[in-house]
């Protein structure tokens, strides 16, 4: 993952808590769930773009976390470890929905130049809404890069596509978002 800070809940997860989880202590596992479920649910929501899928994916991912907690080496890496499990489950959910990451899902994006940009401003709602309208493949790459802070190399490995493809998809996705937000600005 890129070096910048991630948005995970910073609740202190100790080796003792992880040991308790390994020993089947459901209360300890609930503590772990409480610490990460919020951030992980948001990943699921962004990736699946659907509340029902996000809930199912979150639940399945935490079942795997519970099942594989003995593989976790230390509490220090728990955050990235859980996040990776959740992201993998999201990708599986998308694959089940026949989302092909290699498929270019070509979106006609014309890079506009020299246009009047002075009235153009980002808002959280507009960006979120624009991302929601992106094709699954583009949205996945954009989310993994911008929100989950994975590098293009990591994304290419996760999706099984080339790094140049993820970069191209990311650039196109970003441009598409910019155009949508700009249109929204214009119609306000």
């Amino acid at each position: 993952m890129k070096a910048s800070a991630n948005n995970l809940n910073q609740t202190q997860i100790t080796d003792t808590l992880i040991d308790s989880c390994r020993n089947g202590d459901v209360r300890a596992f609930r503590e772990l769930y409480n610490a990460y479920s919020g951030a992980m649910y948001n990943i699921c929501l962004r990736m699946t773009n659907n509340v029902s899928d996000a809930e199912d994916t979150l639940q399945e991912a935490f079942i795997q976390v519970h099942r594989n907690i003995h593989k976790l080496e230390n509490a220090g890496s728990v955050s990235a470890w859980i996040k990776r499990i959740v992201v993998n489950h999201c990708l599986n959910t998308l694959r089940k929905k026949k989302v092909y990451f290699e498929d270019p899902e070509v979106v006609e994006v014309e890079v506009e130049q020299g246009l009047d940009e002075e009235h153009f401003s980002w808002t959280v709602a507009a960006v979120r809404s624009a991302i929601d309208t992106l094709p699954h493949g583009y949205r996945t790459v954009l989310n993994l890069y911008l929100f989950e802070e994975y590098s293009h190399r990591e994304i290419s490995e996760m999706l099984g596509i080339s790094e140049s493809t993820t970069k191209t998809q990311y650039m196109r996705a970003k441009e598409k978002v910019r155009q949508i937000v700009k249109q929204q600005n214009a119609t306000r």
Binding site: Y33, G38, E55, W122
Partner: peptide, 27 residues
């Protein structure tokens, strides 16, 4: 000129977060 999308998201990262999952997920 609008700021870059990446910078905007970094600066407003927490505002993109939705409330956590329903308690029935834990149940």
């Amino acid at each position: 000129m609008p700021e870059d999308l990446e910078r905007f998201i970094q600066q407003h990262r927490s505002e993109f977060e939705m409330p956590g999952p329903s308690p029935r997920i834990w149940d």
